[in-house]
Amino acid sequence: MAETAEQARAVALRLARARRRRHWGEVAAGYALVSPAILYILVLVAYPFFLALYFSLSNVTVAGGYGGFVGLANYLSIIHNSVFIKALENSLSFTFFAEIGKAVLGIGLAFLLLQTLRGKKIIRGFLLIPFTMPLPLALLGWKWMYDPQFSVINRVFGDMLHIMHHPYPVWLGDPIFSWFAILIVNIWRGFPFAGVIVLAGLTSIPKDILDAAKVDGAGFFRTWHFIIVPLIAPILFIGLIYDVTFTLGDITVVNILTSGGPNNATEILPQLAYQNGIVGGNLASGAADALILFPLLLAGLILFLRMLFRRTTVEE
């Protein structure tokens, strides 16, 4: 008995001594191990980001090397450009309406995935295809579905179901239909993610809380509004920030389907930044086009941080 107690004390002593000895070594090792990640981020994310800021305040072009500092001139000139205004409008409206569409479809999907279904894993796999399939590749399918001559949408709803009538829309060639075409693809691509996020929230709610609500006679909408939403708000919020960031910054859908056309009807800021900065070689103006998005994204980042810290303080 005494022997084991003594042994235990000896072990504890050795551990404590080892810990003390390790302390400074541990700090050094810790920094050494994190440094590659920090270095990568500093050189290839932070530095380019400040470079973008600098570009947007200078008159640098691909041909002219690093030009001089021009202050806010680039921003002042782009906000007087009607194409830029159209692009800003579209970026915001696509994101806004796409988020609503994704939320509606996503909440439905989450409740569907909450049910007991046979072969749920496989069904879930199929339901998540829009999100898991690489977007540039899925977009080729959409481009073919929107084909001016052979659009399957027109053939099914027009020729087969007779809901649509001649002349059928040229989906990607008409200013109004192309806007909706882009919106539809955005929603299609994003709703499974919304569903998965809502589902992650729903499954994190303790079942007894829901049972208590039921016992107290709360109906579905009361439970949803007063119990479920407040409880899963942090998760929904983070999912939303993440999704807004990527919808706002995504060039793929517009670039592959319309390149911003017809007549700038679907022009968005990322596409404009690409056109001006890379195709046109005007780095300064391209950087300014993209960085206009930054204040919006920054607001998202700050909200995200507040969320994170509020949670840690509550826990402590």
Binding site: V34, A37, I38, I41, L44, V45, A46, Y47, P48, F49, L51, A52, F55, I241, Y242, T245, F246, L248, G249, D250, I251, L269, P270, A273, Y274, G277, I278, L283, G286, A287, A290, L291, L293, F294, L297, G300, L301, F304, L305, L308
Partner: peptide, 24 residues
């Protein structure tokens, strides 16, 4: 703080970086 800082960079979309990163 480092961890949070690194995670936040994930919320900076490539669209803000592609022009200077390409130059670099």
């Amino acid at each position: 703080h480092m961890a949070i800082g690194i995670f936040l960079t994930y919320l900076i979309p490539p669209i803000l970086l592609f022009i200077p990163l390409n130059q670099l």
